[in-house]
């Protein structure tokens, strides 16, 4: 090795370090400002604006947040929604992918294609009509009865057609169900199942185990790490959703924390907006997912690289 290359490496490493430091600054800067502002009293904030040094009112601001806003209840909503999204997505992905990989049926390809179609159009692009469907999920049944002429018969017979109504707006199922209609989880699990050696199935069959025992005793334990990664990613996804929960929930009591935070407008006290309170809200709303990320790092990285198609 010549001295030149050593010198060269040191120079590159210095550049790399500076780049990373800037990157860290870019990511951490807004978070630091959030925390500092959340720790200031409203009065000192009104006097001097954004400040480089933290204040002493963090607890006080969070207390105000808990007593004067709906954020605490909305954090619970977010938790329930994120948990439901993650749990159902994992469960659905697991059984669906299992069925598609470990059985040999001619229609598996069609089912898979139907499910993968969902990846192309995110929920945000179909909110207008999804809203209509969720406001009456029985609508397709009515439509089917009308289209097939059954309803005309019923109307002739009983004097009135069937008109079923089931409104899911402003409820947990209404927020969660449309978020489940995506095939990414199925795709991830299918890719994973296909990496399992075929001998596993053969061995299970020799032991006389049916598909159900194989699914519970063998496939599930093997998929644990991947399911955990999927679960965490979907939980974060559920927690950070915005447009759909914004529309599906209309009362503050049903809104998720992220929606509540965005609506945390100052209530006409006739002063500068209460940014310390709003930033305290941002801290409370983001703290759980941030902790998950900081401590469950390897699952997240695994999950993200798994979404790579």
């Amino acid at each position: 090795m010549s001295g030149d290359i050593v010198e060269d490496t040191r120079g590159i490493d210095r550049t790399a370090s500076i780049v990373l430091a800037l990157g860290l600054l870019f990511i951490l800067g807004p978070l630091v400002f959030t925390l500092i502002t959340a720790s200031q009293s409203y009065d000192s904030f009104v006097r001097s604006g954004i400040s480089p040094v933290p204040g002493t009112h963090l607890i006080e601001n969070i207390r105000r947040l808990f007593t004067t806003t709906a954020i605490p209840a909305q954090v619970v909503n977010s938790f329930i929604v994120a948990l439901m999204v993650a749990a159902f997505k994992c469960a659905l992905a697991f059984v669906t992918a299992f069925g598609l990989v470990f059985f040999r049926v001619h229609y598996a390809g069609i089912v898979f294609a139907v499910l993968m179609g969902t990846v192309l159009l995110p929920l945000d692009l179909r909110v207008v009509t999804t809203y209509q469907v969720v406001s009456n999920v029985a609508m397709p049944v009515n439509g089917l009865l009308n289209a097939t002429g059954i309803n005309a018969m019923i109307a002739a017979f009983f004097g009135a057609p069937v008109d079923l109504q089931l409104n899911l707006l402003d409820s947990y199922p209404g927020i969660v169900l449309p978020a489940l209609a995506t095939g990414t989880g199925v795709f991830m699990m299918r890719q994973f199942f296909r990496t399992l050696p075929g001998d596993l199935v053969k061995a299970a069959q020799m032991d006389g185990a049916g598909w159900f025992r194989f699914m519970i005793d063998i496939a599930l334990p093997l998929a644990r790490t991947n399911l955990t990664a999927l679960f965490i990613l979907m939980f974060l996804g559920g927690w950070t959703m915005y447009l759909w929960p914004l529309l599906a929930s209309s009362t503050p009591a049903m809104q998720t924390a992220v929606v509540g935070l965005a609506r945390l407008s100052p209530q006409g006290d006739g002063q500068v907006p209460d940014y310390p309170l709003i930033m305290a809200g941002a801290v409370v709303v983001s703290i759980l997912p941030l902790l998950m990320i900081a401590f469950l790092q390897r699952f997240i990285v695994r999950g993200l690289t798994l979404t790579e198609k």
């Binding site: 809203y131 209509q132 406001s135 009456n136 008109d163 109504q165 409104n167 707006l169 209309s250 009362t251 503050p252 609506r263």
Partner: peptide, 19 residues
């Protein structure tokens, strides 16, 4: 309902769903 806008939007959905 949180705002005039939302109230109207929700009422439209409710009327369409007869709720």
């Amino acid at each position: 309902q949180g705002s005039y806008d939302t109230a109207m939007q929700k009422a439209i959905a409710a009327v369409r769903a007869k709720q």
